[in-house]
Design a protein around this nucleic acid. Structure first.
Lengths: 338, 338
DNA sequence: ATCGTCTCTGTAATCGATTCCACGGCGTCG
DNA sequence: CGACGCCGTGGAATCGATTACAGAGACGAT
């Protein structure tokens, strides 16, 4: 592959001049410029990003460490992150942690070794020593969706409390009183916050959230299935299952179906995170939708701000309730959303 | 961040010795080794992958250019590709083309500029000049899922002809005679092959595939909706719609629902690509499943073979029919698959 | 004519690694 | 005792860019 030297030779100038042309430095004669450009064209020359990065100490690359790519919510987030990053002139390397802290650390390691300019993380746990070290070391870093208390970096996330309150009101309005939740891992902020929001909303309506109605999940489908089986085996099973993410909702649906029960007639189901498929499940699933694209954009912009020396902003955007038919139907909730 | 020089100084040896220790070169004294290792530890030194890549001319990185990450089939493929690559000591940079040739070229450009060791591509089109140039230039490259005739690189893909034949037989057995297909873009191999397999299977049963029953899609949900609306507006609408990918099936479901029709009573639906959500749609959707994990593994291995100087193998694996309820139910197909 | 200024260009240092080559010391063998 | 080989080590070149610095001309002012 042609290097800058070849271009210089072909154009009859020095490498410095070639470099200047390529970086549109002002002091280059018109004649030299055209000769260099011609040589670049003739040789099909492309600058070596590796060499450039070594010299300039920047890679124009962002690392995105995501809890689970197979979760449609995160897939979508990743997609919008890449889109915004591209608009800002950055590439993105995605590391999929599969909700495993060890994998998460592996990816952070690799990304740091590659000297990415900044790190976007949706942590799968409460923060490894490595993560703290990286944050402290001054590597530009932003948390998205989930964050870690005690690590002082900007956070871009959705606030679900309002939507959860709406959801609980909706359920209450439909006559449901025994509400259960499948929680995410306690080590994640989203795992806790959603339970807390749910508990608070129940309390406001004078309802309790007994321990038996809190299933422990890990944001994966299988755990949703297990937790739901647990609920259904209770002497007094809940009337509603609220899954803290879409995959656990899928698992819950599995478990309910396996028991031969119907949604919403026998048991109601709702989920945090809205995804296109929820419109087409049997029945369409009531969910809390996050503004994924906006979150992604805000996160990338905050990271770029950090990298480029501006002051980044933490951002919290509201999630909203999308009512469908999985919790039963009342007079005011006829319309079906898309 | 500490460099190899700092380590050398701290350990009281030369950078050459440090490098030898780090690369487990044999001729290093035990004493020097321990001193270097201690210094590495003390400084928290991590080799700079950028510098290393520049010198060794390899990045231990694979590029994966995918037609559409939001398509669950490709998401899954990407996940397994990363998994296998990691096992082989490579990182993966994913470029999402969104079925847009220009974006595809952009990603190929960027990846080549970053000097990735090899390229895994699922082309969104019939092959840009850039793609041909890259293939010809000797950059290790492997096609996965889709390929481009005339570009001589290994291809790892699924063969759906058997499964399509099974599907058509299944449909025929249920009494369906008017079968329509929503095709993918003509520029993609999977777009064509699936139509051809469908047509051939129909012919063997003495059925024709009229032009009106071939909808032109682009593997995106919206096109599935449009094509299906077209079918439903015909004087004699088809009894079955077969979507050439899962997103177009989703669109078809939308269109059918919007018309107030029911699946499978009013019209049957089947899809190429099986995804977890198809179990939970209303009704569960009959689909052709590809061995995604095996495809990903085979593709990465072929690419690694190419990179490391071994002889790569093209691989074709059979897809298989998974019968659910979206085409109607007959006596032999009672079981519901997962 | 001399000087200063401005524009353009080239030389060379540099980033952080890897690796070829040479060299010193030591053991072995004739 | 000298020659040879081997082992461990360091010096320095190298990968392909960027960029500080200096120098060569051109040109106008004095």
């Amino acid at each position: 592959m042609a290097s800058i030297k070849d271009v210089a030779a072909q154009a009859g100038v020095s490498v410095a001049t070639v470099s200047r042309v390529l970086n549109s430095h002002p002091s280059v004669s018109e004649e030299a410029r055209t000769r260099v450009l011609a040589a670049v064209d003739a040789l099909g020359y492309r600058p070596n990003a590796v060499a450039r990065s070594l010299r300039t100490a920047q890679t124009r690359t962002l690392g995105l460490v995501i809890s689970d790519v197979l979760n449609p919510y995160f897939t979508e987030l990743a997609r919008f992150v890449e889109e915004e990053a591209r608009a800002l002139g950055y590439s993105v390397i995605i590391g999929n942690a599969d909700e495993r802290p060890d994998l998460q650390d592996h990816h952070i390691r690799t990304l740091i070794d590659r000297r990415i300019d900044g790190l976007l993380v949706s942590p799968a746990d409460g923060g490894s020593p490595l993560m703290r070290e990286v944050a402290l070391s001054g590597t530009p870093m932003v948390f998205v969706d989930r964050w870690i208390p005690g690590i002082d970096v900007p956070v871009v996330r959705a606030d679900g409390t309002g939507a959860v309150k709406d959801l609980v009101a909706h359920l209450h309005g439909l006559g449901h009183r025994r509400l259960a939740i499948i929680a995410g891992p306690a080590a994640t902020t989203t795992g806790n916050e959603r339970v807390e929001a749910f508990r608070d909303a129940l309390r406001e309506l004078g309802l309790a959230l007994p321990a038996a109605y809190i299933g422990q999940g890990d944001f994966q489908a299988a755990s949703g299935r297990r937790a739901t089986e647990g609920f259904l085996a209770l002497a007094e099973p809940p009337e509603v299952v609220f899954a803290a993410d879409n995959l656990m909702a899928l698992g819950a649906l599995d478990a309910i179906r396996a028991r031969g029960l119907r949604v919403p007639d026998d048991i109601a189901l709702a989920a945090f995170d809205d995804i296109p498929w929820f419109v087409h499940t049997a029945p369409p699933i009531t969910a809390i939708a996050q503004p994924t694209a906006d979150l992604a954009r805000a996160a990338v912009r905050a990271l770029a701000d950090l990298i480029e020396g501006r002051t980044p902003q933490s951002v919290t955007l509201p999630a909203r309730l999308v009512v469908r038919r999985s919790c039963g139907q009342d007079a005011t909730d006829q319309r079906s959303d898309r």
